[in-house]
Nucleic acid binder design. Structure first.
Lengths: 182, 182
DNA sequence: GCTACAATGTAGCGACCGCTACATTCTTAA
DNA sequence: TTAAGAATGTAGCGGTCGCTACATTGTAGC
């Protein structure tokens, strides 16, 4: 990796921190630049345009999320669906994840609006989560990929409901779909 | 309802159409005003500020969604969880609903960012959907409210996954959590 | 008809937006 | 040492933003 790439990575790290704190929508070049000690002029110089900067930034943030989850999710197989979901939920419920959720909804909004770049990034984030679920499901699941996809839907729904204040009630009810936790 | 309220309702109807077409984030006064044949000046005059206008608009849009769902969801009880979810999904999958999904993610983004107004509106929309589910679940459900909440999470997760291109795979897998459709 | 007030048009303020032209400084290879 | 190109600062363009001051028109009660 040459110096240019290293510099870009450093900028992306700083901007990611800023976006995770202040949200993606409404993030404009001048505050972003100030957060990393440079100017809007230089951000355009390095990334070409704001659109390309945002794309790089989202990929970078998705990578950070993946690293975080990898570091905090035990790689062992669960004994049950409920246990599997509970472990993922425990990781996703930490305070450090909330800023990611904020950005996640921005990605979903753009994707639903038709933005192909953000839809692709969102697709990959979900594919990544799906992969984790597949690897952590109990071995006696007959159709692990499909089961993981269904559990993923449940988890994403919990994230949504949590955003509007139904999180606790929803989390307390999922055992009705998943059976006992043991 | 006096003439003032009627005029406001007409404005809200027109603006709702515009927002459902073009999205909530980025909706600014001048295009909004143009869409209903008036001026930004008059929108501020009628609603006081943009924030209050958006609040009225979201409540109005939520009401329209509720009307649409009420009109299209049969009020009979389902024979199974799968059938219940399938019926709701059929309604939510219609093309007319896609614009609402766009606005829905904008609401979630604002709610996650801490906006109390949009969080409240989102909470109420989900509470409304939850109520429908409770009334449509089979009578032999032992804990209908909790079951409905879990199903609601599943449905919202499907909406999310659909936005990023995993919709079909997810919809095809939920029978693994819900059992057969009969 | 007059008056009071609601409704609306016109114009613009100050701030911010993404982006660029131009000049300058810094670095590096010949 | 010098020439070339990369990196950066300064200033500003044309546009949009929410909002407001001010003047004008419409309207309804006395």
């Amino acid at each position: 990796m040459d110096a240019t790439e290293k510099k870009k990575l450093k900028l992306l790290d700083g901007m990611a921190t800023h976006v995770l704190e202040h949200g993606l929508s409404g993030a404009s070049l001048r505050p972003l630049a100030k957060a990393v000690g440079t100017s809007d002029r230089m951000l355009i110089y390095h990334f070409g345009s704001k659109d390309r900067l945002i794309e790089s930034l989202l990929v970078h943030i998705a990578g950070k999320l993946k690293l975080d989850l990898d570091a905090n999710l035990p790689p062992r197989r669960a004994r049950s669906r409920m246990e599997c979901v509970a472990e993922i939920l425990a990781v996703l419920s930490r305070a450090e994840i909330a800023p990611f959720a904020r950005v996640w909804f921005d990605i979903l909004s753009a994707a639903q609006k038709g933005d192909p770049v953000q839809k692709r990034i969102g697709h990959e984030i979900m594919a990544s989560l799906h992969g984790w679920l597949v690897e952590r499901l109990a071995e006696d699941e007959t159709d692990a990929p499909a089961t993981a996809m269904a559990l993923l839907a449940l988890i994403e729904g919990l994230v949504v409901l949590n955003a509007v204040g139904h999180g606790e009630a929803a989390a307390a009810s999922i055992h009705l779909l998943l059976g006992p936790s043991a």
